[in-house]
Amino acid sequence: MNWRLFTVIFLATFGLSFSALASLGDFHLLGNHQDYQPQQPIAYSHALHAGQLGIACEYCHSGAGESRHASVPSLSTCMNCHEQVKGSTAAGQAEIQKIAQMHAANEPVRWVRVHNLPDFVYFNHSAHVNKKVACQTCHGNVQDMAVVKQFSDLSMGWCVNCHRTQNAQDPKLNAPLDCDACHR
């Protein structure tokens, strides 16, 4: 058994596939979905709505200030405008027609979830929104994204680090660092 050859071949295979996948921009350690940018069933562009048109985040993601979920908006929120606005490009018109049909048929849009935490983690949006943490702090410049991408790595270390630095800057903040704040 030639151990040297063995090691070389193994490392080469692993290293090649590793860098091949990494170069595809799709590689992370297990559980880390930073830069995850899946295609969605409706080609909704935040760059257009939140960026160009300047619609506030909480107009659609209305739960952010009240509940643990920021919540993805219902089709009825879309139809608030798109009842009238039928689109100016062919692609836009096709997408708007799609949502109008789904709304009429009472069928939900099955968005691909971009930001997700494990079941044993409890995260509450309203606690952060009410402490004036900007959406962009964690979600990046969503108003520039045509397709939503996960900007931060959302790991526990990343969360705790922010809590620590913010507490250091503002002693009255009391961002929790206890385990049971998020793991209950």
């Binding site: 559980g31 009240e66 979920h69 219902s74 997700n116």
Partner: peptide
């Protein structure tokens, strides 16, 4: 091992939202 990733998750909000109800509250 290099290619492992998790399954896709879906979010399907109510198509016609009940206005008084905020999910999670």
């Amino acid at each position: 091992v290099a290619g492992c990733q998790g399954p896709q998750m879906t979010v399907a909000p109510q198509p016609k939202r009940t206005p008084e109800v905020t999910p999670g509250v």
